[in-house]
Nucleic acid binder design. Structure first.
Length: 344
DNA sequence: GAGGCGTGGCT
DNA sequence: TAGCCAAGCCT
């Protein structure tokens, strides 16, 4: 189809089908930024309560900057991809301290901030300041690959370049913000991955995928993610009303979150190392918890054991009362154990 | 440039 | 059921 007729048709569709979302009724770059970080690789329904919690707890970027990273992670708890929260906090401090609380006002400056890549910079710049720069996310890949019949593997940098150039030729100068919202809404609600709604499509007759019946084949994505098996043995040290936890550090999963004394093995068998035999014998052993991540399948067993108050805690473990424990950011796996064992 | 990084919903 | 998917970014 002709490039000039794409935007008018899309905007006409958006006029009748747009979703009313709280971050669309503001031009505050802080709220737009916050919503975009939350929505990275995350559905609207899942992110919505987090957006509401964050804007209520931290009404401005200065409020967010003043918080402890741990409290930001605690509010992010359950949403996953926790580096988003750490980068969110770090960038809030940069904006508050080095930009006087005012967000940089261009794509070029935004994309230099932590956690803000090409997509998010384009979203903020277009929504907050109507800069003419196209967003390219999973929706855009899908919509454009189908309508224009582009079979380039979207996992490659070449595809990123190709689709970005096309989107930037399609985006109109007068309504870049509406165009970006529209193409994402269209992808999210009509031109969906499985069983797209082609019957009432505004591009019916001009869609390459529909014409050739290749809706299910486009976009092309070659890479299959491999899932790694991991076996966790947690020792939950309990002393009266306290449990021993530690902060996870390094480049593994759940960095910045808190969990228990962990021993990992390469095979399903084995027991947590380091616990004196007399204590190990007394430990209460949980059923196997299977926890699925996008790239890992974790099978975890919790060995709960009561120890004396003067028990010498190994590694970086520290005692926390149940009240203190509530305020620590914890992975969902740990939350599920606590809920089952202690009715948390 | 390929792989790591969460969680929950859907088919 | 077991995979696949969802408004990406970082290393």
């Amino acid at each position: 189809m002709r490039l000039e007729s794409f935007a008018p048709r899309l905007l006409h569709w958006y006029d009748e089908h747009r979703r009313d979302l709280p971050w669309r009724s503001t031009t505050d770059p802080y709220r737009i930024w916050l919503s975009e970080i939350i929505l990275q690789q995350t559905r609207v329904a899942q992110g919505m309560p987090y957006y509401l919690k964050f804007t209520e707890t931290f009404p401005t970027v200065t409020d967010l900057a003043a918080a402890d990273e741990r409290d930001v992670l605690r509010l992010w708890q359950g949403l996953g991809y926790y580096s988003r929260a750490r980068n969110l906090h770090a960038t809030a401090r940069i904006v508050a301290d080095e930009y006087g609380g005012a967000f940089p006002d261009s794509y070029a400056k935004l994309v230099q901030l932590k956690g803000i890549g090409p997509y998010t910079a384009a979203a903020i710049a277009s929504f907050a300041w109507k800069e003419k720069v196209a967003v390219v996310d999973g929706n855009v890949f899908r919509v454009l690959s189908r309508i224009f019949g582009i079979a380039t593997d979207i996992a490659t940098p070449a595809a990123k370049k190709e689709f970005t150039e096309l989107a930037n030729r399609l985006i109109p100068a007068d309504h870049p913000d509406l165009f970006n919202h529209a193409i994402m809404d269209f992808g999210a609600t009509q031109c969906v991955p499985v069983s797209p709604v082609c019957l009432f499509c505004p591009f019916a007759g001009d869609c390459e995928a529909q014409a050739t019946g290749r809706q299910a084949e486009l976009p092309v994505k070659e890479k299959k993610t491999k899932v790694r098996d991991r076996f966790f043995h947690y020792t939950v040290l309990q002393s009266g009303t306290r449990l021993a936890l530690k902060e996870r550090t390094g480049r593994d999963i759940w960095s910045g979150m808190y969990d228990f004394w962990l021993t990992e093995t390469d095979t399903p068998g084995g027991k947590p190392a380091g616990l004196p035999a007399d204590l190990a014998a007394r430990a209460e052993v949980s059923p196997v918890f299977t926890h699925i991540l996008s790239h890992q399948k974790i099978q975890a067993v919790f060995h709960t054991v009561e120890v004396p108050v003067d028990f010498l805690l190994p590694e970086q473990l520290k005692w926390y009362t149940f009240e203190e424990l509530e305020d620590l950011p914890k992975p969902v796996l740990i939350l599920k154990y606590l809920k089952g064992r202690y009715q948390f």
